[in-house]
Design a protein around this nucleic acid. Structure first.
Lengths: 239, 239
DNA sequence: GAGTGGTCTAGACCACTCT
DNA sequence: GAGTGGTCTAGACCACTCA
């Protein structure tokens, strides 16, 4: 009946309060992994709130893998909780500047070509589709930070054809002008190839951190990029 | 007035439909990055649905970084869209088996000790807190897959003290019995140390993929683990 | 068939922030 | 002060799944 009125802070009975309380019960072993917890209706009654509020709390906990929900069955504490981490994907420049270093980049090559077959298959592009191939080197305080080898689907991002990349890197231009909704990342450690070693100023075979990323907007491929970092690089995520 | 009745499928006017339509408008440049889009009220009128429904669609888009929302200002298409990737965190055994390989592991060492200072600071544990230190080697088809060096907060997970880890690895035991809500991951490439090289059957200095992970349940530290993989390892995420 | 989560509607108050 | 998003309530129908 009365208005609860939640804002940023967690008032009594907000979905945030309920989330925290559920986590508390899990931590204190009130509810064990695998256990079925009361239904939304019951919890709503217990917390004195609407069912939708409980629903949101439980949905968000399900989103991060803490609980599992099934219709007709109910909600149970996950036996294999939290299956995912979130990694931030910053613009290279921002990433460098955030570490207090000076950023600059240089474009090593730039070619408009028809899509090579391996790339075509990887991104599900039509045969002969025009793509832009760009290779860049990014620096932090004049030390090589990342070697970038990128392919861009010109059908999806026609405006990029007119870009000189003198002041704005392809990475940053894309991030600003070509939103995407789907992304695949493949992270690995590898030994530097001869070219990578030369670019990054390390020895051939030295460990490098490799990120290969493909992006789409709905089902339209945008770009595929391989980014290679020296082994001092750290990718950090907090969930 | 009428009931829309959405289920798994996206009926007209479900929050899913609205999400997709908004993505379509972004893809088709109806709305450009940086642009302010109509308010929830207007969109609700346009789509013929309740404001809450538009709110959920926009909230989920904001969650993945496609739009940015501010009170009093409105919702705009993000200029730096999608800042995060989600990485799945599987149980080692599952991960190995998913690749069609046979899994086994061996416990290299196991000690209950007082928390060392560096670890104490990292996890914000009280001085002298009891921790369990376990080192394991995980195999895929009898080839070394991962070298694991783990510290466990016994105050948070007392039951683990009685575990022999003969059949269930510490990793899997924790995943089954110790839910967590917060996690930090630090991914990097490194040269194998002498010990790591020996364990993984590679040469010293060879590239290895390193995951360092710390977990908490609410604010209680659970475990800190360093997992080292040979360079053939791939960490893949799809968003 | 019946119970549980999934989602929608309609209306409301609040919090933040810009002017 | 005013406008926009943030969230809550109350009630409802639907979809899925188990028995």
């Amino acid at each position: 009946m009365t208005q609860t009125g939640t804002g940023a802070a967690a008032q009594p009975n907000s979905f945030r309060t309920i989330k925290t309380e559920i986590l508390r019960r899990i931590r204190d072993r009130v509810w064990q992994p695998g256990e079925l917890i009361p239904g939304e209706e019951d919890l709503a009654r217990e917390f004195g709130c609407a069912r939708v509020t409980v629903n949101r709390a439980l949905r968000e906990l399900a989103d991060i893998g803490i609980v599992e929900r099934k219709r007709r069955v109910g909600t149970r504490i996950a036996e294999h909780p939290l299956r995912e981490a979130r990694l931030e994907i910053p613009v290279v420049r921002t990433e460098v500047e955030a570490r207090g270093a000076q950023y600059r980049f240089s474009v090593l090559s730039r070619d408009e070509v028809e899509v090579p077959e391996t790339l075509r298959a990887r991104l599900e592009l039509p045969p002969g589709a025009p793509v832009l191939h760009v290779r860049c080197l990014h620096f932090a305080d004049n030390r090589p930070w990342q070697f970038e080898d990128r392919w861009i689907n010109l059908a999806a991002v026609p405006d990029i054809a007119g870009q000189s990349f003198e002041t704005v890197s392809p990475n940053e231009w894309l991030v600003r002008n070509a939103p995407f909704s789907e992304m695949e990342n493949d992270l690995s450690a590898a030994g530097a190839t001869t070219e990578e070693a030369e670019m990054l100023g390390v020895s051939r075979g030295d460990p490098v951190f490799v990120i290969e990323r493909a992006t789409w907007l709905l089902d339209q491929p945008i770009t595929l990029v391989r980014m290679v970092h020296p082994s001092s690089y750290r990718m950090i995520s907090r969930v």
